[in-house]
Design a protein around this nucleic acid. Structure first.
Lengths: 230, 230
DNA sequence: GTTTAGGAGACTGTATACAAGACCTGACAT
DNA sequence: ATGTCAGGTCTTGTATACAGTCTCCTAAAC
């Protein structure tokens, strides 16, 4: 019989390209406002234009790219205002996620959260900052999963990537602070205290926002970080 | 000089296809779980596979389609549970939207909201139910725009389309009720009363949820409306 | 000097072609 | 009866080809 190829998601070039382009945008290798020429990207990645085009649609839907018909795609520009706006949305969404996670808490989801926290702890101790950022995102995503609301999860994925983008642009790493706040979120969720879970999630995002604003205030004196490129 | 072609978005086949497929999914012409074969769609729409493929990526990102590499795309299945889950997210998001809209109210945005309300009123009086549904969506979207938060707008568009999908599936038209609730939202927003605006938006979505649950309770006796197709 | 026509190059939009994987069917073996 | 293997068909993934449009540069006209 043919073997169950359950999670063996056949890797397609299109997915690789999407991941790679997203990574380059998040890391800043592709600067804001930079034009994305299909031919050049295809050449650079060693593929044809088709996978690139499909990736561009996906990244546009996620808000990382702006497409104007007949004129082409550019990396989206993230103004400081838009960066700040994101936090309002995050407070609403992540507050809800934490509340639902507390309501529907289960041993397995708590286990999952603790797992991520532990790995983040190791990364913080090891000083691996990039990994810390990924694990922070993973924690928030895990809270979203624990909420058991599929549409919420669907929305949170691009939102958290965007949040990571915001921080990578400001270089406002606050890994260690995040960790203890995550821990307190976890405790409220595991205890099933909905109000407290929501409050702590909101407070966490609010703290991130403050840190962001401070960083923007600073980086704005170095226009390259936030000003447009073209 | 070349004339400013501001809103003259050059129509591309890809966009037409995306709209058409989305419409067919919303209207139920393409049933939940139905397989989307690129060749057949391309033939039916009189285009090549490329625009179809790109459309599929976009609709997948919006959550209307599920794609499994190498196996193809299917119209997403919307279980009653997922339909219900959507309302939780909407309460959070639309509550925020209404609050921000009240905070940043302006004569022009109020004008815009009133415009949509007026047209919806006419549609209700005229008994044009399909148009009522579109205008209801337009009202919520206008509130989102009035909130002046670009990421919020980005998230709301697919969310509201999905909400429309939920209702089109349950045939739970509640146009007239919606209208008066929209009016009361508008009043709170125009008055700049943030708390009240948020509360009324949440109450509105909660009412929609109740109506949905009643409809699901009813339609569940007629499995065709909600059961899978394949 | 400014403006305008025109044309070359660059890029996107769309179609077509080919390669490879997944599924179904039926024969054959156990 | 169950399992398995081979072949054919259907479908997706990827590459290539061509057409249309936009941009920019140049040169002529006023």
């Amino acid at each position: 019989m043919t073997e169950l190829t359950l999670g063996a998601t056949h890797r397609t070039l299109r997915d690789e390209v999407t991941r790679e382009l997203r990574r380059r945008i998040l890391s800043g290798e592709l600067a804001q406002g930079e034009r994305l020429v299909e031919d050049r990207l295809a050449g650079a990645l060693g593929v044809s234009r088709n996978p690139v085009r499909e990736s561009i649609r996906v990244l546009a839907a996620e808000g990382f790219i702006e497409v104007v018909p007949r004129l082409g795609a550019t990396v989206a520009r993230l103004s400081a205002e838009e960066g700040e706006e994101l936090f309002d949305v995050r407070m609403a969404i992540e507050g809800l996620a934490a509340r639902l996670a507390a309501r529907k808490r289960s041993p397995s989801s708590a286990e999952r959260l603790r797992q991520v926290l532990d790995r983040a702890r190791e990364a913080v101790d090891g000083g691996r900052l990039e990994q810390v950022a990924d694990l922070n995102t993973a924690f928030h995503l895990a809270v979203g999963e624990a909420a058991g609301n599929s549409y919420l999860s669907l929305m949170m994925k691009p939102m958290l990537l965007r949040a990571q983008w915001v921080f990578s642009q400001t270089a406002a790493a606050r890994g260690p602070h995040s960790w203890s706040e995550h821990l307190s979120m976890y405790e409220a969720i595991a205890a099933g205290d909905e109000d407290e879970a929501q409050a702590r999630a909101i407070a966490h995002v609010a703290a991130a926002r403050r840190s962001f604003l401070v960083a923007v205030g600073r980086t704005r004196k170095h226009p390259n970080d936030w000003k447009t490129v073209r």
